[in-house]
């Protein structure tokens, strides 16, 4: 059966299955289990209403537990077993990871990524958001800077492969070096600095995201605070740094953490550009080198990633709870 037909059937089954489930479950609840008639009508309606939320939630809860909750626990357990999965070795995978120089490189690089990319993307996003704010063609400019958001990491990597190419007739960087009389070099093989060349790609993608959110936040800054500052004689730079930025600090933090989480998950760029060679390994790409070969080690790396993300997760939950109150 061709995958397309299979896909059409899946859409059909999925959509009608969902609608059918919700409809039938409601009908069952209202007409058969707790019918809104007879001697106990009041009690029946109350009971039906107490159960209904769970009917609505059931598919989502099922999917979330199987596809996100179970794997967290499953990975944690699996990471304590050996490669074949039949012998419990406790923290064995973790200790062998800790002894692997490749893992240490990945950890250090990941820390670099998590520091540099959110900072740079937030900074550029803020700058663009402020600069385009009162520009007549600001929306076009924003739209163009936002565009890389739509491009896959693989596509973006290919795009930047052209920029970084060693041949001065292909790579614009080496063309500029050539014009200045310098020898061509491969930016992706420069030890240590190649990490930053890879980060540029993610910054290029994520700046648009930061810009969109910060631009909305800047628009939300009350006009009277800005006017008051201008009347008091503050120049445009002071208005920006002393009045606007402090008022949108909350949003800046959100943008920063959101990009940080993303950075910790992205493996595509390193995988496509260098394959983790030349000292550019990061945790997600390091994990993929064990995928399909050693499930124990792979899950151990995944758990390490999870531990790194955990503080952000807790902070997010706290924020969400504060907001609900």
């Amino acid at each position: 059966m061709s995958p397309l037909v299979q896909g059409a059937i899946t859409i059909f089954v999925g959509v009608f299955g969902c609608v059918g489930y919700f409809y039938a479950a409601n009908l069952l609840l209202d007409k058969v289990i707790y019918p809104a008639k007879g001697p106990n009508i009041g009690r029946n309606i109350n009971r039906a209403n107490a159960i209904r939320p769970w009917l609505f939630l059931l598919p989502a809860i099922l999917a979330l537990s199987i596809y996100l909750v179970y794997p967290v626990i499953g990975s944690l357990i699996r990471s304590m077993y050996n490669r074949a999965g039949n012998e419990f070795i406790g923290l064995g995978n973790y200790t062998s990871l800790a002894g692997d120089p490749e893992f240490q490189t990945a950890l250090i690089n990941n820390a670099l990524w998590a520091l540099v990319v959110p900072a740079a993307a937030t900074f550029f996003g803020l700058v663009v958001a402020q600069l385009t704010d009162r520009l007549s063609w600001g929306n076009i400019a924003k739209s163009l800077i936002f565009m890389p958001m739509a491009i896959s990491f693989v596509g973006a990597s290919l795009i930047w492969k052209f920029v970084y190419a060693g041949d001065p007739d292909i790579g614009i960087i080496n063309a500029i070096r050539d014009g200045m009389g310098l020898d061509p070099l491969d930016p992706l093989q420069l030890p240590f600095w190649n990490n930053f060349f890879l980060m540029v790609i993610l910054v290029w993608i994520q700046t648009g995201f930061a810009m969109v959110i910060l631009s909305a936040a800047l628009r939300g800054v009350p006009e009277d605070t800005i006017e008051a500052a201008i009347i008091d004689g503050a120049g445009p730079f002071r208005v920006f740094f002393r009045i606007k930025v402090p008022q949108i600090m909350g949003t800046i933090v959100v943008v920063w953490t959101t990009i940080t989480i993303l950075v910790l998950k992205v493996f595509d760029i390193v995988y496509t550009m260098t394959g983790g060679n030349f000292g550019t390994e990061i945790l997600p790409s390091y994990m993929m080198s064990f995928m399909f070969r050693d499930d124990g080690r792979a899950t151990a790396v995944a758990v390490v990633i999870m531990i790194v993300v955990l503080p952000v997760m807790i902070w997010n939950i706290r924020q969400a709870q504060k907001e609900m109150r």
Binding site: Y67, V69, V72, A298, M306, M313
Partner: peptide, 27 residues
């Protein structure tokens, strides 16, 4: 339990996909 469920959803938003790969493929 509504508040708790919402908190869970917010928490699951940031679970790294990497964790899901091995257990789910085995499943």
């Amino acid at each position: 339990g509504r508040g708790l469920l919402i908190a869970c959803v917010v928490g699951l938003l940031v679970v790294p996909l990497q964790l899901a790969l091995v257990p789910l493929l085995n499943l």
